[in-house]
Design a protein around this nucleic acid. Structure first.
Lengths: 244, 244
DNA sequence: ACAATAGACTTGTATAGACAACTCAAGCTA
DNA sequence: TAGCTTGAGTTGTCTATACAAGTCTATTGT
């Protein structure tokens, strides 16, 4: 019996299948079970917990529907990959996107500095004025054509090594996702005209409309980063899908 | 036996619970079952289909998890309300949005015609050329300032009374949502410059960037409507939220 | 008239058993 | 050796049954 598995549960009166789901989710989120690792089979859970197979089956099936596990008939049940944000306006990694389109990605770091938050920046990040932050400005190229200006401020207390990253190797997105995995976010999408500087950087004319995405990203209760992403309208579209 | 319920199914080899799910989803998306209407109880399905209760239970439980149905112990199972927030870029009713901001909404119907689908329109709607469609063009005003041009084509076989609506009373969105509730959709967001006609209609200058949203909406397997929504960049922002 | 109770009907959970379908590896055969 | 068969282990589905728990109505008792 592994009934002790259910010991430190917040709500002991949950149904069995729910407790099992929670126990499994915990193992995964606490890193005890790695991605792609095989998890016990239904038969093993049955023997270990002394419950019926249908009960175990329900727990595993629901976790599969939720994208936590992956099951293969004849093979077993495995911890699922972190889902590749598909559905909607999720937070994309511009580099991945470009490469997925079969094009080449390259980025140019214009600014990377450590600083104290100004009043405005403090408000945006939800921290006190003079709180430590980083500022960065990066231009992303798709096949040598500028596709995005990324202006970003970062909460230094949650991403302390931001300024030590090599942004020619990884995008800021990749570092932030491993250091302070995003749990929540907000977008504001607008159509704007570029400033002269931006025209130059994006190699576009002053009348070319741009898609501007303002994004704030949380990890837990802290705002990790605020970004302003500017895309030339002629080279970029946002795609979204909702529903089933 | 109501086994005939499963007759015109695309894939007859699906499991029973999946066929039942699909049959129910279809009833809802075809408007035969209205929101909040009670659907047959598990026992009734069991008697009608001659299957076991656990199989019916699985179908209903999964549809509940998907937000299609709502179940109340002791009461029954009901068609769920359309959820107001689908985390991200939901399909908004522009009128509601404006009123929620505390402003006045008014709309002007420029075009409303019944027609046969051109080749392009047929492709967009996923129907045959010459299939019956409706075309409409509406301008929405927020406190007497134009905020959106809505160009729309509608699948006539799924929304047959579209041209008989009084669009000064209700928006096209409201009619379509009751007639063929949307189950799925797609957005494409771009920044574009307006044409001269659009400048006039939106009362903006030719250099003002606009947010253009191309939206396709499904109910079940049919595309119900394709819309092109054009917003002046200075008066409109798209907001999105994701995560918890 | 009012309150309490009983019963019918509903969904929620759990069990035990059965068979199908798939994967893999070991063993057998030509 | 190459190919086939078999069997063990896995998930996928379905059944029949049982009891718990929530809601409402009709009946009963005071």
């Amino acid at each position: 019996m592994l009934a002790h598995l259910f010991d430190d549960m917040p709500d002991a009166s949950q149904p069995i299948y729910a407790k099992l789901k929670q126990a499994i989710t915990q193992k995964i989120s606490h890193g005890q079970w790695q991605v792609n690792q095989r998890v016990p089979s239904e038969a093993e859970w049955v023997k270990a917990l002394g419950v019926s197979r249908m009960t175990v089956n329900r727990a595993l099936r629901e976790l599969t529907a939720e994208g936590i596990l992956v099951r293969h008939q004849g093979l077993g049940t495995f911890v699922a990959e972190k889902k590749a944000h598909s559905a909607l306006f999720e937070v994309h990694n511009i580099a991945e996107e470009i490469i997925a389109r079969g094009h080449q990605h390259r980025s140019e770091l214009l600014v990377l500095e450590s600083a104290k938050a100004s009043v405005e920046e403090a408000v945006m990040l939800g921290v006190r004025t003079n709180h430590g932050i980083f500022r960065s400005v990066v231009i992303h190229y798709e096949d040598d054509l500028p596709i995005q200006i990324e202006e970003r401020i970062v909460n230094a207390s949650r991403a302390p090594d931001y300024d030590k990253q090599d942004f020619s190797k990884h995008t800021s997105y990749e570092y932030l996702m491993t250091t302070a995995p995003m749990t929540e976010g907000e977008h504001l999408v607008e159509a704007v005209l570029p400033t002269p500087t931006e025209c130059e950087r994006l190699q576009i004319s002053p009348t070319e409309p741009c898609l501007q995405i303002n994004r704030r990203t949380w990890a837990g209760d802290d705002i990790i980063t605020v970004a302003r992403l500017l895309h030339p309208g002629s080279r970029f579209q946002l795609f979204g899908h909702f529903g089933r």
